[in-house]
Each structure stands twice: as structure tokens, then as C-alpha cells.
Amino acid sequence: MAEDDQLILLEWYPSVFAARVRIALAEKGLKYESRPEDLINKSPLLLKMNPVHKQIPVLIHKGRPICGSMVTVQYIDEVWSHKSPLLPSDPLQRAHAKFWADYVDKKIFGIGSSKKELIECFKILEEELGDKPYFGGESFGYVDLSLIPCYSSFYTYETLGKLIMAEECPKIVDWAHRCLQKESVSKSLCQVLADSVDKKIFGIGASKKELIECFKILEEELGDKPYLGGESFGYVDLSLIPCYSSFYTYETLGKLSMAEECPKIVDWANRCLQKESVSKSLCDQSTFYELSWR
């Protein structure tokens, strides 16, 4: 690719919205430079290229920014229209696809949904899918691309919502597995929440009850000490404190109050956050929830 046609993607890998753009670029067979962003200390380039929202993803093409995940997907589809079309050419079908992509944004990613609301939304999408292999018909398209990043959250839905996606929404699960057979999808999605948060950080596929039980055990170990290591911040504190970024997610999805369920852990976390080494290293709770989950 010529230097003046270079593509640069400002992104954060766990973001479902960045995943949309990665999939679109892969579908078109386009090479690009990925530049990971620190969402706490945003780069001057990100602030320059997206001064309004200051958010990722931002695709830079010929030195000009394109912001917003589905706006970017549409741009990619229009500029490189010769390969793997994502939107139908028929105006009515294009409008139909955009309607459902908007539905996905507002109902799947755009709400702090309860289990009931989430399942209802997926049921409506199953009706739209019908017996088609993809939402667009016989080929992977715009609506499929808008929704498939939420696959990374299926394990989280099941763990915190105490549900089985394959039982509640079998057509959506079959559709997701079909999408995952595409290399452009499987190599673009992130399993951060399922693998890193639930398994690596906590070591369990924790239900709400199990999660609270684990924190209660840690509260017993903490006792009246300021830190788990005693009088000073140490190894165990360091191993646990990154989960503070997930507290808002636990509360939102698990319908619980960490301060009520685990007051000592919350006090301990606030004590740790007084350390600059901690406060400057963690992802804030709302950012974690917005970009990693929704």
C-alpha cells in the first residue's frame, strides 16, 4: 500500500467496537497498522483525530480520520467496494441492514440490560435471522459484522446471568459459530472477558454467588489489616487490585452492590487507589464496562 494510502487503526484490543473495524478490514483483505491506545492516557494523535468524542476506534486513511465503528465499516465498504461487499446494493435492502445494525447498537451494546431484556433482544434478532445462514442472507454482511463482537461476551452473559445461551438463543449461537468459521472474524475477536477476567484473574467461572463467596474469604484473610500483606501494599494486593476495574461490571450485570456485599474489600481497594502506582495503572470502571462489555 502506497504511503499516502496508508491505513492506521487507533484501537484497544478488547473493544467490541474496534473488533468491528478489524473484521471489516480483514474481509477486504486490507493491511493496516494497529496502534493500541492507553485509554487512561490518550495519545495526542487520538485527541487530534477524534477531538469530539476522544474515543477509539479511529481509522486514519490518507491522513484523515474516520470515527465511529459502523461509520468506519460503511466507509471501508464504500471505498473498497470491489471485494466482499458488506452492505447490499439494493437501496431497500441497505436500509433494512442499517435498521438492524442500529438495533444492535441500541439494544445489545447500548443498554445496561437485565437478563430478561438481553434475551428478549436476542429473540427478536433470531426472528430476523430466520433460517438464513447470515442476517444478510447467504453471505456475511453488515448486520452480522455489527453483532458478532458480542460473542466475546457470551461467557460473561452465562456466568453472571446464570443462563445458557445455547438453550435461550440456539439460533444466535449457531449463527455465531458459523461466523467464527470465517478467519476475518476468529482472528479479530477478543476473549478478554471470558478468559482473562473470569478465568485468569479469578480462576473460576464465577456465578454471582461464587464471586461473593470468594471475596468474603478474602475479607476474612484481610481482617483488620490495611493490606492483604499486612501494613504495606504487597504481592497479594497487587494480584487482586486490577479486579477493581470490574466492580461496576459486577454491580451492573450481577445486580449487586459491592459496598454492601463486600465492604472490607471496597475499603481495601480505595486504600490501594491512594497509591499513585495503582491509580495510574488501572483502567477506570466505566471505561472498562463501556469498552470491554457493552
Rank of each mutant, 00 (worst) to 15 (best):
D4I: 07
Q6W: 08
Q6G: 12
Q6K: 15
A19K: 03
E27F: 08
G29L: 14
K31S: 15
Y32T: 09
E33V: 15
S34M: 11
P36A: 09
E37G: 05
L39N: 05
L39T: 08
N41I: 13
M49F: 04
N50H: 01
V52L: 07
Q55L: 12
P57W: 02
P57V: 02
V58H: 00
L59I: 06
I60H: 06
I60F: 07
K62T: 08
I66V: 12
C67F: 04
C67G: 01
V71G: 00
V73M: 00
Q74Y: 05
Q74V: 05
W80C: 00
S84C: 12
P85H: 07
L86V: 03
S89H: 13
P91C: 07
P91S: 00
P91V: 03
L92F: 15
Q93W: 14
Q93K: 15
R94L: 11
F99Q: 13
D102T: 13
D105F: 01
K106V: 07
I108M: 01
G112H: 14
C121T: 12
K123D: 10
K123E: 11
L125E: 00
D131A: 10
G136T: 08
G137C: 02
F140G: 03
D144G: 01
S152A: 13
S152F: 02
K162R: 14
K162M: 11
L163E: 11
A166D: 14
E167G: 02
E168I: 07
C169F: 03
P170S: 01
K171W: 07
V173S: 06
W175H: 01
W175S: 00
A176S: 11
H177V: 11
H177Q: 15
R178S: 09
R178P: 05
K187H: 11
K187A: 10
L189D: 03
L193H: 06
A194W: 10
S196R: 12
F202D: 02
F202T: 02
K209H: 14
L211G: 00
C214M: 14
I217P: 03
E220P: 01
G230V: 05
S232R: 13
S232T: 13
Y235D: 12
Y235I: 05
V236H: 08
L238N: 10
S239K: 06
I241R: 04
I241L: 04
I241N: 00
C243D: 12
Y244R: 05
S245R: 06
G254Q: 10
M258G: 05
M258L: 13
E260G: 00
A269R: 02
R271G: 02
R271Y: 10
C272E: 08
Q274P: 08
Q274K: 15
S279L: 04
C283F: 07
S286Y: 15
F288W: 12
F288V: 05
E290G: 12
L291K: 13
S292V: 10
S292H: 14
W293A: 09
